[in-house]
């Protein structure tokens, strides 16, 4: 069934229809992702139940509170389905809390991440809210600097060779943008800026 869905979606893309992206709308700044995607000519759906995933070509897990989002993921049975879809090449991008959700493991004892990517992640790695910051970054695949907004942000502390590091920063040092196949995770929030290049990058992954 899942495979058939994927084949139909691929065919839609080949005949030039708009990409249809889902944004997980359990909690967090999903509206900002939706605005950004719509201004890049994607069709967008808010995803609140697992059955709604069947209609979309890719998924964004937004910023928000990771404990809240994981809680709601489990209450509404997203876990098994997302793990299965990710393993079959379904494109997913997590920003901030989304990176935490996609990790294999956390340095914390909670919440229990979905283990979609081979990364170990430290939550609130830069400190509390007063330590939240902005920094212009050089990111592989993006020309020039990218304005990154870090809010109580996580960082990748371990990854295996299947993970491509798109960007790292210093002090504390570690990757803040990583990709593994069609899975993408960023510590920062491109959806809070006026710069849509990371969203265009994700759409190019979905189109592949």
């Amino acid at each position: 069934m899942l495979e058939l869905c994927q084949r139909i979606k691929k065919w839609h893309r080949e005949v030039g229809e708009n990409l249809h992206i889902g944004v997980l709308a359990l909690q967090g700044d999903y509206a900002e992702h939706i605005n950004m995607l719509q201004s890049n000519n994607a069709d967008v759906s808010e995803i609140r139940l697992p059955s709604q995933l069947d209609d979309v070509d890719g998924l964004i897990i937004p910023g928000g509170e990771s404990t809240t989002i994981v809680q709601l993921i489990d209450i509404y049975d997203f876990r098994t389905k997302l793990v299965e879809m990710a393993s079959e090449g379904f494109p997913i991008w997590g920003t901030c809390a989304g990176m935490i959700v996609m990790a294999r493991e956390l340095t914390d004892h909670r919440p229990a991440p979905l283990n979609l990517m081979n990364i170990k992640v430290s939550r609130n790695a830069f400190g509390r809210q007063i330590d939240s910051f902005e920094e212009d970054l050089t990111i592989k695949g993006i020309e020039g600097k990218f304005p990154a907004v870090f809010i109580r942000a996580p960082i990748v502390v371990e990854n295996d060779s299947s993970v491509d590091i798109l960007c790292s920063i210093d002090k504390p040092s570690g990757p803040v943008a990583v990709q593994q196949g069609k899975l993408l995770a960023t510590s920062f929030h491109p959806e809070l800026t006026n710069d849509s290049r990371m969203h265009e990058y994700f759409l190019s992954i979905v189109k592949m």
Partner: peptide, 13 residues
């Protein structure tokens, strides 16, 4: 941006 941004992360909560 980071002050107003944290509130954006709380939305829907």
């Amino acid at each position: 941006k980071v002050k107003a941004g944290l509130a954006q992360m709380l939305k829907g909560g």
